[in-house]
């Protein structure tokens, strides 16, 4: 009987949550449902904020036809982690008057978050972040992709991005001529 009572309580809690609408339900292109904190979604995504404010959120799952379930799961995961993360103590405390970076470095947990993703997942996530207007997630994912690109030759880049080399030999040579300042040889 004790067990049943506990279950009843849980259901009640869920009902209260729905009534208060603390969360929104998002539906991926392949029909999977994900719940995310309304506060985090509105804070992190300009598109979701607009939908929440405009009342176009569907309680049965707001359709996000451009986003697959894997990418949406990562988006929701990011929102939840972001809501729980404690902002790192200000690194910049000195009085030095030289300017600091315009781009805010990813935090440790954000690095870990994108580091564990496969190439496919990362590229899908960057597009999802772009679609949903999630500026911070876009920064973090773009930063990760740019990190991946460093130290790679054009050949390796083509491999990673699966791009076909559509240059003629002469055209390549012409560009190489302009690259005298890049200290690479290939």
């Amino acid at each position: 009987m004790e067990v049943d009572k506990g279950k009843g309580e849980a259901e009640e809690t869920r009902k209260v949550a729905e009534a208060d609408r603390d969360t929104v339900t998002l539906k991926s292109s392949d029909g999977k449902l994900f719940e995310v904190s309304k506060e985090a979604a509105a804070r992190l995504s300009t598109v979701l904020a607009g939908m929440i404010a405009g009342g176009s959120i569907d309680d049965n799952g707001t359709d996000l036809k451009q986003i697959g379930s894997e990418a949406l799961e990562n988006v929701v995961d990011y929102c939840n982690k972001h809501a729980n993360s404690i902002p790192s103590a200000a690194l910049i405390s000195s009085s030095i008057s030289f300017n600091t970076a315009p781009f805010k470095e990813p935090e440790e947990w954000e690095r870990k978050f994108v580091d564990r993703l496969s190439h496919d997942a990362l590229f899908d996530l960057v597009e999802a972040a772009n679609f949903l207007g999630m500026e911070r997630l876009l920064d973090v994912t773009c930063h990760k992709i740019s990190e991946m690109m460093k130290g790679k030759s054009p050949d390796q880049i083509r491999e990673v991005f699966n791009i076909k080399n559509d240059y003629t030999k002469e055209e390549l040579e012409e560009i190489r001529q302009e690259l005298a300042w890049a200290f690479y040889d290939d």
Partner: peptide, 23 residues
């Protein structure tokens, strides 16, 4: 638009070098 965002995070010399990737 996304490719531009990513390329802008690279050092200038590297970005210019990646013009070798494709047209």
């Amino acid at each position: 638009d996304l490719l531009v965002l990513i390329l802008l995070l690279l050092p200038t010399s590297l970005r210019r070098r990646f013009r070798l990737v494709c047209k």
